[in-house]
């Protein structure tokens, strides 16, 4: 009689330590109980879990509706945004981008020769390049096109580069994000690095991207409602009222980092490219609707 309870309690303790009880109750695995193997190594499971999370958090809002960002869940802001779309402020950037797109380099070649389908290629970026073992973004591809034609690279975040990517985003509208599922070890590592970046708290305010866009999504931070992570990549570049100019996705990443008191990383550096890769995979199948306007 005395031995049984001891053995039983020891068994429970052993099961808890080995993680068996967590698994049987369907709860999450602990941070230090072997989660390393299931974080970032099953991207499709992550994508489905995130969609289910938002469908549960915002009943009646289909997951794909988050392509409109905050306007999917904030009716008054949506009405204002739809009015803005009648005379969108990104139009100038699109026009200037189109002109640049068809202006030949000294070699006589234009961007249209580098990017097939008249530039409607945004859905193919970012992608993981196995040869360089790194994530390739649209902005990098634009500069690769320039380098191939013996033209100096554009500065990341520059107006010229943002205008070109705005034009490419515009002609790519209605295409669906189609990032190939990371399967190789290197691609999975890049995806996992992006996921880790997204979930890591930074800055003296101690915020992770997930703090605002998963944990507090739909709630207010000061006067602004917080959007869902899904669809964050579909509408960039954006004309940002606060900046009075076009803004790339990586500039927005840097702004978010600064806002929480963290030193931002280099635009198109490995950290932000991995982050873009991770976020883009999560938005797979969602319609591209950039460029856009945001507050």
């Amino acid at each position: 009689m005395k031995i049984f309870p001891l053995s039983f309690s020891m068994l429970i303790l052993a099961l808890v330590i080995s993680g068996q009880v967590y698994a049987s109750t369907g709860a999450n695995t602990g941070a230090n109980s072997g989660a390393e193997t299931d974080t970032g190594e099953n991207p499709e499971q992550d994508r489905q879990a995130l969609r289910a999370y938002y469908e549960n958090l915002f009943p009646g809002v289909p997951a794909d509706a988050h392509k409109d960002g905050i306007y999917a869940i904030d009716a008054p802001s949506r009405a204002q945004w739809q009015e803005m779309e009648e005379f969108p402020l990104y139009e100038i950037a699109v026009d200037e981008g189109e002109e640049l797109f068809y202006t030949p380099f000294d070699t006589g070649v234009t961007y249209a020769d580098c990017f097939e389908n008249e530039g409607a290629v945004k859905q193919l970026y970012p992608h993981f390049d196995e040869h360089t073992s790194s994530v390739v973004t649209l902005e990098m591809a634009i500069n690769t096109c320039r380098a191939t034609n013996k033209t100096t690279a554009l500065e990341y975040g520059s107006a010229e580069l943002n205008n070109l990517s705005s034009y490419i985003a515009f002609v790519s509208r209605n295409q669906k994000v189609q990032v190939a599922e990371p399967k190789t070890a290197a691609a999975l590592a890049a995806y996992k690095a992006g996921k880790r970046f997204y979930s890591t708290r930074r800055g003296h305010l101690n915020f992770a991207c997930t703090s605002c866009h998963i944990q507090l999504a739909g709630r207010k931070l000061r006067a602004e409602k917080l959007s869902a992570s899904l669809g964050h990549v579909t509408h960039f570049p954006v004309y940002r009222f606060k900046w009075q100019e076009m803004l790339s996705l990586h500039q927005r990443f840097a702004e978010c980092n600064s806002q929480v008191g963290a030193l931002p990383f280099d635009l198109q550096g490995v950290e932000y490219r991995n982050l873009e890769y991770f976020l883009s995979y999560l938005s797979n199948g969602m319609q591209l609707n950039g460029p856009a306007t945001r507050k």
Binding site: N32, T39, S199, T200, S211, I214
Partner: peptide
């Protein structure tokens, strides 16, 4: 180092 792993839906 490890805390980030609990912040994403599973």
């Amino acid at each position: 180092q490890n805390a980030w792993q609990d912040r994403f839906p599973k």
